[in-house]
Each structure stands twice: as C-alpha cells, then as structure tokens.
Design a protein around this nucleic acid. Structure first.
Lengths: 140, 140
DNA sequence: CCTTGACTTCGAGCGCGCTCGAAGATGCAC
DNA sequence: GTGCATCTTCGAGCGCGCTCGAAGTCAAGG
C-alpha cells in the first residue's frame, strides 16, 4: 500500500506530450527556478506529480500569453513565499489579464486595418502602388 | 510650381513619430529590403513620400500582428513583382488574417484558464499549493 | 560663419527563450 | 543478462528582431 492510485507519477516525456512543452524546456524551467526541483526515481529520472503537472500547465498558460520569463519567475517566487503573498499574486495575475486583453484588442485592430488592404486587392483595384519598387514598371 | 501641396515629404524622425517605429528600425527595414530605397535630399537625408509612409504603416501592422520578417520580405517581393502577384498577396494576407484570429482565440482561451486561478485566489481558497517550494511551510 | 542637433553608414552586439548535442546512466522488455 | 530507447547533466549555440555607438555629414537659426 505505498500509494498507487492517489499519486500517479509521470515521466518527462509524458508531461511533455501532455503540455506541449519539450523535455528540454521542462528541464530548463526547472533549472531557472520556475519550478521546484521535481521528484526523482532512485535512478535520478524525473517523476512528475499531479501538482507538478498542474504547475507546468499554469506556466504554459502564462508563456502562451507572452508573459516574460522574468515575470513568471517573480510569480513563482511569490508562491514560494507562501499564502501571505496571495494579494500580490492576484495583482500580478490581474495586471496580466489586462495585458492580454489589451493585446487582443491591438491584434483585432491591426487585423481590421489589414482587412482594408485585402478588400482593395480583392476588388481588383491594385492601383495605389504601395512603394517597394515600381509595381511592375521595370522588371518583368 | 514644383509640387508642394501634392507631395509632402517627411523626415525619418517624423515618420518615426507617426508610426511608432524608431529611426533605427526604419533604416533597418530599408536595409533588409522590406522597403524600396527611400528618396533622398541632395544632402543624402531621407525624405519619405506619402506612399512610403503608407507602406511603413502596412509593415507596422504586419509586425504588430507577429508576422515574421521573412514573410514580410516575401510580401514585399510580391509587390515588387507587380500586379500579377495580387492573387498570391491576397492568399498571404488571408492566411495571416486566419493566423491572427487563431492567435486571438488562443490568447482568450489561456486568459480564461488563468481567470480560474484568479478566482481561486480571490475566493481566499489558497489551498491546493501549486508546486514551487512548500507554500509557506519552511521559510518564513 | 558658426553652432547645434539631427541626419548618415557601418558593423557589431544584445536580450530573450529556448535548443541542441555530447557523453554517460537508467529502466523495461525479452 | 542483454539490448536499446529514454533518461540524465552540462555548457555552448542559435534565431529573431532589433539596438546601439562611433565617426562623420548636413540643415537651419542667429
């Protein structure tokens, strides 16, 4: 009865496949302190607990939304400091939420601006040569 | 009558301030072929035409939406090739439109996932210690 | 004319986030 | 026991997109 069902452990490859981060990246994150040292087998191989996988998933969400590694390190540090840092964690996450929303809006705005260009091309009005070169005057 | 109102020319600084790209970046873009050589004064200073500024703005929109420089170069090349490349330009822009939309969706999804974390913290249920360290067991 | 600040070219350097490869140990299947 | 894939550490390297600084030239005001 040395816990079986309760604490399922995953290899680095399994975590990699489950999260989309490469084994190289998982080791890198651990190396730079984004993660606490992962549990090992007797032989020294990493065995990720469910909690570790959950943390990796959080990291992935932060990176996927372009949080800089430095900020993620700060967040990891706050978690290490314990429950009294919860307010600051909240602040950090809320700021990031705003950053993401702003980014989404910027993307949508730029996309809309580009759509105008698409419309012009699609309408066949390839007039108004933008700039590079001569729009088919010299070569070919 | 040597055209005054019709062709207003801007210095690199003015274009920089108008587009948000630094003078360094504007020269860099020209250097790597994203732009046709910009007109010069007798003294060799750049004088951007309205068409050049328009092109710079397009470049900025593409970059702002994370199009790789390599793809932008391809697009610039297509424009240089003349009107017969319009279909391929359209294809490129439409693909990019899809990429942006996909990116927006990924950002929103990750943001929503992170929101769950915010809710947990805000609810004061700082249980479920994620992973790094010991959530205030050992140090301070 | 002289000053002052903005312009020019050039090549080198940088910050970020991985990414890789070598060399060796491990672990599971047979 | 014997393979053989997968794991380990380590430090170096890389790709991208700028970014910078030096050294010199130009433009415009007084």
């Amino acid at each position: 009865m040395t816990d079986e069902l309760a604490s399922q452990r995953l290899t680095i490859r399994e975590v990699s496949e489950g999260t989309g981060l490469t084994p190289h990246t998982l080791r890198y994150y651990e190396r730079i302190g984004l993660m606490a040292p992962v549990e090992r087998t007797d032989g020294g191989h990493r065995h990720y607990t469910a909690a570790a996988v959950e943390w990796v998933t959080l990291l992935r969400h932060l990176r996927e939304t372009d949080m800089p590694i430095a900020d993620m390190s700060r967040f990891a540090e706050l978690v290490r400091q314990g429950p009294e840092s919860v307010p600051e964690r909240l602040q950090l996450l809320r700021r990031h939420h705003e950053a993401i929303t702003g980014r989404i809006e910027a993307l949508a705005a730029a996309r809309d601006a580009l759509d105008a260009k698409i419309v012009v091309y699609a309408a066949g009005e390839a007039e108004t040569p933008p700039v590079p070169g001569s729009e088919g005057e010299s070569t070919a």
